[in-house]
Design a binder for these strands. Structure first.
Lengths: 353, 353
DNA sequence: TTTAGCACTCAGGGAGATTGAGTGCTAAAC
DNA sequence: GTTTAGCACTCAATCTCCCTGAGTGCTAAA
């Protein structure tokens, strides 16, 4: 069967109505729309065709039609019209961005919160680093009673650790230690930290040998953390305000699935060509998200780092509006963090105790 | 009216039954319990008394009784018996702790997750630092094309930032800069970073003067972050598995209230004398939590840092079990982070590049 | 090809009716 | 004086039945 222009027009009307109201819509209601100049009977015929073609579904005989996942897909790919942000919207987006994202420290989680607020849906934000993760340099700064070990990685990440000094180790010994570390462990991925290598280092380290295990441990952690990406999920409760989650069972299943492990698998799916990606219900790879849609977008923030933000929500969500807002947000971020004078290698270290 | 032993016994039976089943319980069911050797009529009389005294409530005439908040309070303060962890439980708690809390880096959020899992309730974890927040020392490490600024605070926190170097600044200039910073800004709270002071610093800093604002900015951030405590909330979805939140409206209200702002007000309530604190429903200070109870406990992890973990759940929760698990966990943490050879001033720095 | 008309379907909602757990009270038993 | 058995009463929850109305598919006429 052919998908005529009229069929498309009707399909679009159905999808958009359903997005707005979350209620099945019938032939009569469509016929009543100003831009429809056919009778309800005609529309009924067309709807029967669209149902046969798999674009519509009927919850039960005497209900109206709702879009099927295939219907959403078609809508997203072909029928959706760009949503234009209003002046007010750009305004408040701008303001939120500038006021909240000052510190990069927790910018990622802030992003999540922002996106969640502006979409009224749960949002997630992921920051991932690319790159090989090796140490490019060790630095040792003596302090009273100890020293600070500074580890710089090849992706310009810097981490440090305060280490207490055994009594017998002198400042001279630390210099030696530093030299040995820099000579042996730099430019080496963590997997190649073999016991033999560590032994050799301990032997060369003189009086400071006892410190080697602590240092290597820390270094390994740093390198491993380097590969891991951080995931923040916020606004889960927002799901409950949408009618499709009025059933607690469904909401519960959904929300439990919305944890970080599931989310952290999503970024892999983003097609490098298309920064914006929409996964409609059953297209979702994560089993837990089968009932929902995911809209996600990538953004670049300087070298070595890449991020993703996205929202999760009912399949019936306003894709046009959400993609518009996400895009705007992603662009804003890239601009903010891309163009600063100082390199984006912006350092913030958290220390405990 | 007097609260006889028998009344207490009955109240305890009611509370514990309600904790288990979430259903109102009637006189007959209580009389059927093995340890009760009175008839249902007697128990009915006693229940009428307990209701008059405010310890029980009746959802409606023909339902059984449920404990009132005052009833819970009495139960917690006087009737609750210590819950003894089973060997299996201690086992799995131990394992979870050791395997998951290796890195202190994100230990706080890990804690939250663990507690949430072991209680099947939303959990929060807060780490707060005490202390005045001043810089005890600046350190500058030159690197190719820039330098790393290391800021050590008085509470042994260390943070760092990578800064690009303008061409005309030499290594010698950096030494001067470092000296000036250490002379002028150490031991000074951020509020005293006055414009005049900064001007004076810029003037003394020679060719590196242009870097002063960036450095001061960063330092201020570090000091401010120092005061702020981090809050993690996890497992919100777990609420939905409890019968009191089968009503989506209630669940939604609750979950929206469960955000970080509300939670971060809780720690202030912990009585220093009693590390374990239980807030029953209406006793809650946060309006949003009026319908729920909060169990929280403090733990100390070395100098300068203090933490809190807690769970939020229906007023009908198994206080005995939960307090037992939380205590065990808190003790374990204190042990793990308190007794290590190296000082708890364990440094981990996150850097964005 | 479109439209009007009509019989049919079926979820949703409301009005009783029914059930049964639980109560309070009274009077007898201990 | 305390405990218990008995009984009438209450009321949420559940079930049943019926009605309503939105929506459909089909047919026949325009």
């Amino acid at each position: 069967m052919e998908l005529t222009e009229r069929k498309k027009k009707i399909l679009r009307a159905i999808v958009e109505s359903y997005i707005r109201t979350a209620e099945p819509i019938g032939s009569k209601a469509i016929a009543a729309m100003p831009e429809m100049d056919f009778s309800s009977a005609t529309i009924r015929n067309e709807m029967a065709d669209l149902t046969a073609m798999g674009y519509l579904e009927q919850p039960h005989t005497s209900a109206g039609r709702i879009p099927s996942p295939a219907g959403y897909r078609l809508y997203i790919d072909e029928l959706m019209q760009d949503y234009r942000l209003t002046v007010d919207e750009t305004h408040s987006l701008n303001e939120a961005m500038t006021s909240r994202l000052q510190e990069f420290d927790n910018a990622i989680s802030q992003m999540g919160k922002l996106v969640s607020q502006m979409t009224n849906l749960p949002a997630y934000a992921v920051a991932s680093r690319r790159g090989s993760a090796t140490v490019s340099r060790f630095e040792i700064i003596p302090t009273a009673g100890g020293f600070i070990l500074v580890v710089m990685t090849d992706s310009e990440d810097v981490k440090n650790k305060l280490i207490k000094l055994p009594l017998h180790v002198t400042e001279q010994d630390l210099k030696l230690l530093s030299a040995v570390l820099n000579a042996s462990l730099t430019d080496l991925p963590a997997e190649e930290f073999t016991p033999e290598l560590l032994n050799r280092i301990s032997r060369s380290a003189g009086p400071a040998a006892s410190l080697v295990p602590v240092i290597v441990d820390f270094t390994t952690h740093v390198l491993q953390a380097q590969q891991k990406s951080e995931v923040y999920v916020t606004g889960q409760a927002k799901l409950l305000s949408h009618p499709e989650y009025q059933d607690v069972g469904k909401a519960h299943k959904m929300l439990s699935g919305l944890d970080e492990d599931v989310i952290s698998n999503l970024p892999a799916l983003v097609d490098p060509g298309h920064p914006m990606q929409i996964l409609v219900g059953p297209e979702n790879v994560a089993e837990e998200l089968k009932d929902t849609s995911v809209v996600m977008t990538r953004f670049d923030i300087g070298d070595g780092m890449q991020g993703m933000i996205g929202v999760v929500g009912p399949t019936r969500m306003d894709y046009a509006q959400i993609t518009a807002r996400l895009s705007y947000f992603a662009e804003g971020l890239a601009r903010m963090f891309g163009k600063q004078e100082l390199p984006p290698a912006h350092e913030e270290n958290k220390e405990e105790s």
